[in-house]
Design a protein around this nucleic acid. Structure first.
Length: 492
RNA sequence: GGCGGCAUAGCCAAGUGGUAAGGCAACGGUUUGCAAAACCGUCAUCCCCGGUUCAAAUCCGGGUGCCGCCUCCA
């Protein structure tokens, strides 16, 4: 089934085919490590993760690169003073640490949260600060090609030399000028007000590097151009980011990376639209900028957060709500329960017809699941197939063998979704000393309590049996009575 | 002011011309000592107005509301 992806560049869905058959090269705009990444940032990284997982599920090899922006940027508050101040620098001053320490701290935090959210490791996470020589080389090339110039101590890219400037955002230079409305103070030495910085000199900046253009630091957009070219080549398959990256960041990248040629560095551009929080945009004044840590502190699990961020389409303003997190919790619980129930089916001989039915259903639903994601990552359609299959399996599977077949299907899908995790939550008899869930008991001790409860039930002492069940429940252990006996498992 | 996107049930969310997927919640029922789990059933005419069409949530025009970019904030 052919994969169709919307391309910001052409504003339509296009058939996706990697330049090199069977092998996809993808670049993702990564985090700026001057503070904790919030769930909006992770929504963007999750788009990359879902795409990567689906490509791999489809049998393609993926080379994924995500940059770490540790140089920092000009802050809005400081634009006015014309000197500018690096965000990392500001943070460093506030926290009285050096910017390199700050950057490393938040980079570590990013990876910790990323792993919590079950986002697969990219193949490389290149740091901007470790690729300044590559950026300098690129700037030199642009100067040599006459696409850039030095003025007023800075190096600028001359947009007049790249007629297609603005192609990604759909802006023409004239429109951008019209929209500018005098809000931006332009450096008078620039040839055109929209020419953007490649190399900047500012003695107050803490992070400085020597270069042929003087001691300074790289401009705002050059890092992604240099990093992507180094890791993936001049033209690669996919470039992702948040919708705010479209202009100016990605348009500038395209201009720089063209090298004066009529080529655009990436073929497919995918942008995650902003998520809203309770229908409102994230903002400091509303206090709704949540980090993974914030939500975990409120009692939600990383998988619930992942699922809630994943179920909306990446090109829609999905609404992130606490009710949605509760909904995600219930769905995950339901699916884990399904796994347990399937694996606990009686181990007896399965009629050939039943196996056949479950197997063909599994294949049919998998086709639907893949078709959904193939349609520009329409995960809602895929999840509908998943739910249909679970419901059907409940009705059809009567033995452990059928159950295992159904679970295999679910687990395969979870390679793409990544929300169920590896553990199935069932008690492991071999771990006699391990505590069960959040309780203080071992599995053997829980078994003993369950036995006591069943003795009470047998003599119809329901007051006592309910008391024991309440005690277990309070400890996070769920009891299920069935004709085959009583089963229990830890919550979740 | 310029460019772009969105508007579907209490909540989340598919569906781009053929008569509204799926999930959560809720309610009724089966099952259970009671539960839990599972199962069965109920629950929307698609922001408003006008137009095109045999037929529109889906196309066109006009409103209203929300979101994004135009100042590196995914």
């Amino acid at each position: 089934m052919p994969l169709q992806l919307y391309n910001t560049l052409t504003r339509k869905k296009e058939l996706f085919e990697p330049l090199e058959p069977g092998r996809v090269r993808m670049y993702n705009c990564g985090p700026t490590v001057y503070s904790f990444a919030h769930i909006g940032n992770f929504a963007s990284f999750l788009l990359a993760d879902l795409l990567r997982r689906h490509l791999e599920y489809s049998g393609l090899e993926v080379l994924q690169i995500m940059n770490i922006t540790d140089v920092g940027h000009l802050t809005q508050d400081n634009v006015a003073d014309a000197q500018g101040e690096d965000k990392l620098e500001k943070k460093a001053r506030e926290e009285k640490k050096d910017p390199w320490e700050i950057a490393r701290f938040y980079e570590d935090a990013f990876h910790a949260d990323r792993k919590l959210l079950n986002i697969r490791d990219a193949h490389r996470y290149p740091r901007a600060t470790e690729h300044v020589p590559e950026m300098i080389t690129m700037i030199e090339e642009l100067l040599a090609a006459g696409l850039a110039y030095e003025a007023g101590g800075q190096v600028y890219f001359e947009i007049a030399k790249f007629p297609r400037y603005g192609i990604l955002s759909g802006n023409s230079t004239e429109e951008l000028m019209a929209g500018e409305s005098g809000r931006v103070e332009s450096d008078p030495s620039k040839r055109h007000p929209l020419d953007f910085t490649l190399w900047k000199r500012d003695p107050k900046h803490l992070m400085q590097w020597d270069s042929p253009f003087g001691r300074g630091f790289p401009g705002w957009h050059i890092e992604c151009s240099a990093l992507s070219r180094k890791s993936l080549g001049e033209v690669f398959d996919i470039h992702t980011g948040g919708e705010d990256n479209i202009f100016p960041h990605h348009d500038c990248e395209i201009a720089q990376s063209s090298g004066g040629k009529d080529q655009i560095c990436a073929r497919h551009w995918l942008h995650r639209r902003y998520i809203l929080i309770d229908g409102k945009k994230m903002s400091k004044s509303l206090g709704n900028i949540y980090t993974v840590g914030d939500l975990v502190q409120k009692g939600y699990t990383p998988r619930e957060i992942r699922f809630n961020l994943l179920i909306g389409h990446y090109r829609a303003n999905s609404n992130f709500t606490f009710q949605g997190l509760d909904s995600a919790r219930e769905t995950i619980r339901y699916l884990r329960e399904f796994r347990r129930n399937m694996l606990e089916l009686p181990a007896r001989v399965t009629p050939a017809e039943e196996i056949q039915t479950v197997a063909s259903l599994s294949q049919e639903r998998d086709r639907g699941f893949r078709a959904g994601l193939d349609d520009d990552l329409n995960i809602s359609a895929s999840l509908a197939e998943l739910h249909a299959f679970v419901s059907e399996a409940y009705k059809l599977a009567t033995t452990e063998e059928s159950g295992r077949l159904a679970v295999a299907r679910l687990d395969a899908w979870d390679q793409v979704l990544g929300v169920l995790g590896e553990r199935d939550g069932s008690p492991d008899a071999s771990e006699t000393t391990a505590r069960v869930g959040k309780s203080n008991w071992t599995a053997a001790e829980v078994d003993r309590l369950v036995g006591e409860r069943n003795e009470a039930r047998a003599r119809k002492d329901f007051k006592e049996s309910d008391r024991i069940r309440d005690v277990l429940k309070a400890a996070g252990i769920v009891i299920k009575d069935s004709p085959q006996g009583t089963r229990w498992h830890a919550e979740g």
